[in-house]
Structures are given as structure tokens and as C-alpha cells.
């Protein structure tokens, strides 16, 4: 029972993180049509920012906020240099460019920060809640709560602001959106920055629990893709729900089947979903017009 509950909680924590990363990924995909394989590297950037700031004596909450900003700024640079020039090119080239950026950032981090994992100290790391014999560290609760708040905030932002409506218009049909006066170029920049900055926060949040290291982003990116496929490419609420599902699958597969094969199990689920319902399990099917 205790083991089950622990696995459940771990799954929820992972799920919250995946939701956050996938949210950024799906927003970017929706507006730019870019499958951004460099998404997880922004979590790495957020994580290392938090690490260095905390080391320099900055308080952890402030470090998280700065991590958000740093990821956003680097995102702006990356967009300008690697994606914006390719906006007229085909999607395969965009995808490759993002793969290149991903590897570049990993190698750069390995050079600058050494490949070793770093421990980030959060004031909540040591504290835990005791729920009838099940101990849950407060940092984990924080991850779930903050992720939930951010997902909700993004959701509201998209639903109820002018920026949000522009984003929706641009992801439905960029050409028509442009005709209706939506500044699609600016929207695509802003969406990219928002998308990677959210991932940056995820990195800063997970740092005290899972440590930070240069290659940490790769598996995050892959999981986020699984989430996005489950939830439907470009579907915001799908990404949030899909994140929790993947987190739970991974946690239970690791806990009850095999840690070595847990990634293979996650991807097998992905395969099954892709084959049975390529639109994602959480989207309605729409007929394709010839």
C-alpha cells in the first residue's frame, strides 16, 4: 500500500513536470509548426541557472524566477539564429535544426559546467509531509502545485487575453490570421519564448529532486513528445492531461515492471497510440478534406 502510494506520488510529480514541458512544446508546435527537439535543453538551462544562483546565495524562489527569465532570453537568441531564418523552409529542416541546437546546448553545457550532476539546495528539500506513514517531500508538493498554477495560468492566458486569441488564431491558420491583422511573426517569437521559459521553470523546479546535468534535457524532450502525441499535437489541455498520464505510466512501469525497460514501455505506449489514434487520445477526430 505504502509502495503503491509512493509510486503514485512520484508519478504525479513526474507528470506535473512533463505537463509543463509539454505545454511549452505544444504551444510552439501549434504556432510555428516546429517539433522542437531542443525543448528539454531549456529545462537544463533553467536548472543550471537555479544551481549557480543558489550557490551564489540567491534565495531558491528568486532563482526559479530568474531561471524562467534566462531560459526565455536564450530562447529568443535560439529562435533568432536557428528557427526564424528557416520559417519558409520545410518542417524536416526545422526539426533537424532543433536537433542540432539541442546537441549544441548539451555540448556547450558539458564544456562549461562539466558533465557531472549538481545538487541544488532548496529550503524545502529536507522537509516532508507525513500522510499516514507516507512521506512526501515538500519540494515534490511544490513542483505539483507550481506546475498546476502555471498550466492554469497559461490556459487562462490563451482563453481570455488578446495575446491568447492571437496565438489560437495563428495556430489554426497563420495565413488567414495575418490577413486579419494578427502579427504572426511577433506572436511566433512570443510563443516560443513563453514555451521555453515555462520549460525553464520546470528545470529549476525539478533541480532539487533530480539534480541537474547537461544531458538531462534529452529524456525530458522525449517524454514531452510522448505527452504531446497522447494529448494531440497543439492541444493545450491535452498536453496537461497527457503529462500526468505519462508520468504515472513511467512511475508504475519503473516500480512494478523494470527500471531498465521503463523508457521502452513509455515508447511502446506511444507506438500503440500513434497506430490506433494518430490524432491523440484526447482530441476529437476531424475528417481530412481532399
Amino acid at each position: 500500500m505504502v509502495e503503491f502510494a509512493q509510486t503514485l506520488v512520484n508519478g504525479l510529480v513526474l507528470g506535473a513536470l512533463y505537463s509543463l514541458v509539454a505545454l511549452g512544446l505544444t504551444l510552439i508546435y501549434g504556432v510555428m509548426g516546429l517539433a522542437n527537439f531542443a525543448q528539454g535543453e531549456f529545462a537544463m538551462i533553467g536548472g543550471f541557472s537555479a544551481f549557480f544562483l543558489v550557490q551564489e546565495g540567491v534565495s531558491y524562489p528568486l532563482a526559479v524566477v530568474i531561471g524562467f527569465a534566462v531560459a526565455g532570453i536564450i530562447g529568443l537568441l535560439v529562435h533568432l539564429l536557428a528557427f526564424y531564418p528557416l520559417r519558409q523552409s520545410n518542417h524536416i529542416n526545422m526539426m533537424l535544426s532543433s536537433l542540432g541546437v539541442s546537441l549544441f546546448l548539451v555540448n556547450l553545457a558539458q564544456y562549461l559546467f562539466s558533465p557531472n550532476p549538481q545538487v541544488v539546495k532548496s529550503p524545502l528539500s529536507g522537509e516532508s509531509f507525513n500522510l499516514g506513514g507516507i512521506f512526501i517531500s515538500q519540494q515534490r508538493v511544490l513542483i505539483v502545485v507550481i506546475s498546476f498554477i502555471l498550466c492554469l495560468a497559461t490556459f487562462l492566458l490563451l482563453k481570455h487575453t488578446k495575446f491568447g486569441r492571437s496565438v489560437q488564431a495563428a495556430s489554426l491558420d497563420p495565413d488567414t490570421a495575418t490577413l486579419y491583422g494578427v502579427p504572426t511573426k511577433r506572436i511566433s517569437f512570443m510563443t516560443f519564448i513563453l514555451g521555453v521559459a515555462l520549460t525553464g521553470i520546470a528545470g529549476a523546479l525539478l533541480a532539487p529532486v533530480y539534480n541537474v546535468y547537461p544531458t538531462m534535457g534529452i529524456s525530458l524532450t522525449l517524454k514531452a513528445f510522448v505527452v504531446v502525441v497522447l494529448g494531440g499535437m497543439g492541444n493545450v489541455s491535452g498536453a496537461i492531461a497527457g503529462g500526468v498520464i505519462v508520468g504515472l505510466i513511467e512511475s508504475f512501469a519503473g516500480g512494478y515492471i523494470s527500471t531498465g525497460f521503463q523508457d521502452a514501455i513509455v515508447f511502446t505506449v506511444l507506438f500503440v497510440v500513434l497506430i490506433l489514434k494518430p490524432q491523440g487520445i484526447l482530441t476529437k477526430v476531424q475528417g481530412e478534406k481532399v
Binding site: 502525441v229 499535437m233 511502446t268 507506438f271
Partner: peptide, 13 residues
């Protein structure tokens, strides 16, 4: 992209 992700999954498995 879906094909890209599916084949990527194959490689990882």
C-alpha cells in the same frame, strides 16, 4: 512530425 517521433521511439526501444 508524427513519423519522426515514432521512428525516434523505435530507435530508443
Amino acid at each position: 512530425h508524427f513519423l519522426g517521433i515514432a521512428t525516434l521511439g523505435f530507435g530508443i526501444i
